[in-house]
Nucleic acid binder design. Structure first.
Length: 550
RNA sequence: GCGCCCGUAGCUCAGCUGGAUAGAGCAACGGACUUCUAAUCCGUAGGUCGUGGGUUCAAAUCCCUCCGGGCGUACCA
């Protein structure tokens, strides 16, 4: 049992036996006070009860305190403070011994099981296969990947999925664009499609195909050529995207193809179900979904007057398919340009009787690249776009991942390229990685002095302020992981890492690990080993490396 | 017009879902290498938490007004 659970149990028992509140009536909150003088944990229950019981909070706190019956081996001091807080101070000896939990759990330290193996899925990036991935895709890739790591760490069975929009109008346009470029290459005119894809990568693709296949497509009938070029372009661009993502250490469990839904007519079945339930009507030759009855601001078209299923309809069927594959909870990460799309998708899934709240969307906000303090203006027309691949080649995977996940994903991110490339003290990534490298070096140094890493030591010797601060910081880790997962806020991990690294560096500068004092050396070796474990576990969640030396 | 996101130190951002004196990093200034790596540490300075109201023992946090910035608002995907 963690010290938090211990305190909560004791508190709720005391509340009941005093008749202040029944168990489950409200949640007992324990917080970690900012000010160390306020102890390691504090609770405000007495203040919350004051108005209900019509008594002074401090009076209530005093009675609770009498009733608590705390183990003095765990809690050294419990006192009333301020307006009616109860502050708990943990016993140093207990703190030291709790390090053994970390030694025992190793790479499992920080994990929990509240997910109960529930199947969840995160769909992210899902960029159109009509061009290279951009920097927002890179941000989404990082956030999604880390979220899955977090979910799995807290006991869910979480999967990464990428939706490939390999059907519909855009793919036809892609084929036509490529065809026009190809024909141009072999000296034959073919008008470039309106709203076609102008990027240089299309020209490059045309060249590749020309080198590979020569002029053979020149004689193919136009519709046939468009079709073949659509497929060729799609597969090549998709392969490129997959390569970029895997170089970025993001590995999807499933690449789901929209065309699979279409060939199996899954979307038509969904249309049928919605119709049967009376959620569909016809107007102006189109079929509409009554999404406004489920919280959307207006109704939406499912099938156009020309008989084309809309992207929306197919997307609904995609989400239905996810449920049918056994996922109980669906998370989508979408770009900022799609947030208006959320209400209608939620509406559709509720209309189909999937539990409200089982589908959630997080918007990944835009990325502003900064160079020399200036925003790098990007424009598709001018062909000035920084691709995901370029950015990563430039700054490195570790740095890019850390930067992308270090901010709340619903806020726009300023990505300072100069800072990211900076391999000095200003770069927070090196700051945290350096802590790990430094520990490895100390351990190596200890071994050279014939100190083997001990299995156990007298951890009561760890009583210096910086040692205790470090231990407490380490013990916070499971809580940080849980909350990062619970609130879908992966940025808590980088924040914590910087905090932990700072606490460690401070300890390092105040105390030597390897000294003549054998017992103390052993205790401190265990302390830094635990620090190393927690750092490595956090790095693993973020998908960045834990360097042994720098 | 309507909807969503954002507004906290010069800059980039945290702030534990309502708690105690609002915190980091960078930039600035002053110190610390004969030591287990100075990619580090110690210290100084820096704030009307956009504005005005409300809710209460308590508001950066919750509700409303307004101001400013970004994005969206298709029988497109």
């Amino acid at each position: 049992m963690s010290e938090q659970e211990y305190l909560k149990t004791k508190l709720s028992k005391a509340l009941e036996s005093k008749g202040f509140a029944c168990s489950g009536e409200f949640e007992i909150t324990l917080e970690r006070p900012k000010n160390p003088e306020h102890g390691d944990f504090a609770t405000n229950v007495a203040m919350l009860l004051a108005s209900k019981l019509k008594r002074s909070p401090r009076e209530i706190a005093a009675e609770l305190l009498d009733e608590l019956d705390l183990d003095s081996k765990i809690v050294s001091k419990a006192e009333i403070a301020g307006a009616g807080f109860i502050n708990f101070h943990l016993e140093n000896q207990y703190l030291g011994e709790s390090l053994t939990t970390i030694l025992k759990e190793l790479d499992k330290f920080g994990c929990s099981d509240w997910g109960a193996r529930k199947k969840v899925q995160i769909e992210f990036v899902s960029a159109n296969p009509t061009g290279p991935l951009n920097v927002v895709n890179a941000r989404a890739a990082t956030v999604g990947d880390v979220l899955v790591n977090l979910f799995n760490a807290v006991g869910f069975d979480a999967k990464r999925e990428y939706y490939v929009n390999d059907a519909g109008r855009q793919i036809r346009l892609l084929g036509k664009s490529l065809s026009a470029r190809y024909m141009e290459l072999i000296g034959r005119e073919e008008p470039f499609p309106e709203e076609g894809y102008h990027g240089d990568y299309i020209r490059q693709l045309a060249k590749d195909i020309h080198t590979e296949h020569g002029e053979k497509f020149g004689s193919v009938e136009q519709n046939q050529r468009w079709q073949e070029f659509s497929e060729l372009a799609l597969e090549k661009i998709l392969a490129e995207q997959q390569q970029t993502l895997s170089d970025f250490r993001v590995n999807f469990d499933i690449w789901f193809r929209e065309s699979d839904l279409r060939t199996k007519n899954v979307h038509l079945k969904v249309l049928e179900t919605l119709s049967e339930n009376g959620h569909v009507y016809e107007k102006d030759g189109a079929k509409w979904f009554k999404s406004s009855e489920f919280g959307d601001e207006k109704d939406r078209v499912l099938v156009t007057s020309e008989g084309e299923p809309t992207y929306f309809l197919v997307d609904i069927s995609y989400h239905v398919d996810k449920y049918q594959r056994g996922f109980e909870k669906l998370f989508d990460l979408w770009g900022p340009d799609h947030h208006g799309y959320i209400p209608r998708m939620k509406a559709a899934l509720v209309a189909l009787d999937y539990p409200d709240g089982s589908f959630e969307v997080n918007i990944i906000q835009q990325v502003n690249l900064l160079e020399k303090g200036e925003v790098v203006k990007m424009s598709k027309r001018a062909g000035k776009i920084i691709e995901m691949k370029e950015l990563i080649d430039e700054v490195g995977v570790d740095v890019a991942r850390f930067f992308f996940v270090a901010r709340r994903s619903q806020s726009p991110l300023d990505f300072d390229i100069d800072l990211a490339k900076n391999t000095s003290e200003e770069n927070p990534v090196f700051y945290v990685q350096y802590a790990h490298a430094r520990i490895c070096n100390i351990i190596k140094h200890a071994e050279e002095r014939a100190f083997k890493m001990p299995d156990h030591a007298n951890l009561n010797l760890l009583e210096q302020e910086e040692e205790l601060a470090l231990i407490k910081k380490l013990l916070e880790f499971p809580d940080i992981v849980s909350k990062a997962a619970k609130f879908l806020e992966p940025h808590r991990i980088p924040n914590y890492l910087q905090d932990l690294a700072a606490t460690f560096h401070r300890f390092y500068h105040h105390h030597r690990v390897v000294t003549e004092d054998k017992a103390l050396t052993e205790a401190r070796l265990i302390l830094i080993k635990c620090t190393k474990i927690v750092l490595a576990n956090a790095f693993k969640l973020l998908g960045i490396s834990a360097p042994e030396r720098m």
